[in-house]
Simulated scan of single mutants.
Amino acid sequence: MGVAGCGKSSVGAALAQAEGLPLIEGDDFHGEANRAKMAQGIALTDADRQGWLDRLAALLQQHPQGVVLTCSALKMAYRERLRAARPGLAFLYLQIDRDAALARVANRSAHFFSASLVDSQFATLEPPVGEPRVLTLDATAKLAELQQQASAWLHAGTTE
């Protein structure tokens, strides 16, 4: 979880491969209306995200053996919605500063998310400080290091 540009897709893919788990790319489940809004630089509202979160929650329930889901999950209420669907759900919070996130998003090709929305992501973000089963990682670290830290944490029981 984290803001746009933090590396959710890359870390998620590496972790899924290392752990032998299916990968669900959360962005793939946004409806056309949400995609159009984001492409136009219009931030999504809680109401816009509701159907998306419902789809992701249903997908979590369909994978009782485990799955890696990439999802911004910017607010605690969003994370609680996903936790309700999958008790014991663990989150990796890929922490990044605004400038680094903006640079990454601006350098993307072929993605519907407008770089103009990075500030709205940070405005919406409620960091998961103090929440159960959350590992905070420096999103600017090397991909292999992030995957190794995440795997080690998962195998240690993710009790923090």
Rank of each mutant, 00 (worst) to 15 (best):
L15G: 03
A156C: 03
R108M: 14
G31S: 14
G26V: 11
R108I: 12
E32Y: 05
A110L: 11
K8A: 03
W52D: 04
G157C: 05
Q17T: 15
D119K: 06
Q95P: 01
E145R: 14
L125K: 05
S109P: 03
H63T: 09
G12Y: 03
A144V: 12
E145F: 09
T159S: 13
A141F: 03
W153D: 06
P132W: 04
A90L: 07
M76P: 00
G26A: 11
Q95M: 11
Q121G: 11
H63N: 11
D138P: 05
A84S: 14
A103G: 12
L44R: 02
W52Q: 06
L92F: 13
Q121N: 14
V67G: 00
A33Q: 13
F122S: 02
R49H: 10
A115H: 13
E131K: 06
R83L: 02
L94G: 00
L44H: 03
Y78A: 05
A90F: 02
G130I: 05
V105R: 01
L135T: 09
G7V: 09
L135H: 06
A100I: 08
L59C: 04
L117T: 05
L59F: 06
L59S: 05
L92P: 01
A73D: 01
Q40I: 05
D46Q: 07
E32H: 13
M38F: 02
A139S: 13
A106Q: 15
L143I: 14
N107P: 00
L154D: 00
Q40S: 15
Q62L: 11
E80F: 10
A106K: 15
Q147C: 15
A156P: 00
D27T: 07
E19G: 09
G26N: 07
L146S: 03
R49V: 12
L143P: 01
A16E: 04
S116F: 02
H30G: 10
R104E: 09
L74N: 01
Q61L: 07
Q148P: 02
P64C: 10
A141Q: 14
V67P: 00
S151Y: 02
E131S: 08
G66Q: 07
L102S: 07
A156V: 07
G31D: 15
F113S: 13
A101F: 02
A115C: 07
E126T: 08
W52N: 03
V67R: 01
S151L: 15
D28V: 11
G7F: 06
H155Q: 14
L117Y: 04
L92Q: 01
A77N: 07
L94M: 09
R81L: 10
V105P: 00
L59K: 11
D54I: 14
G26M: 10
G41T: 09
V11E: 03
A152N: 13
L60W: 01
A84H: 11
K75G: 09
L21N: 09
L82Y: 04
T45L: 10
S116R: 12
A73G: 10
K75Q: 12
L15Y: 11
A152T: 15
P132K: 04
Q149T: 09
S109Y: 05
S10C: 10
F91E: 00
A57K: 06
L82K: 01
S114P: 08
R83H: 02
R86G: 01
L102F: 13
S10V: 09
V67L: 10
L94Y: 05
D97S: 13
S72N: 04
I96A: 08
R86H: 13
A100D: 11
F112S: 10
G41D: 07
L56A: 08
Q147M: 12
K142F: 04
E80A: 15
W52S: 04
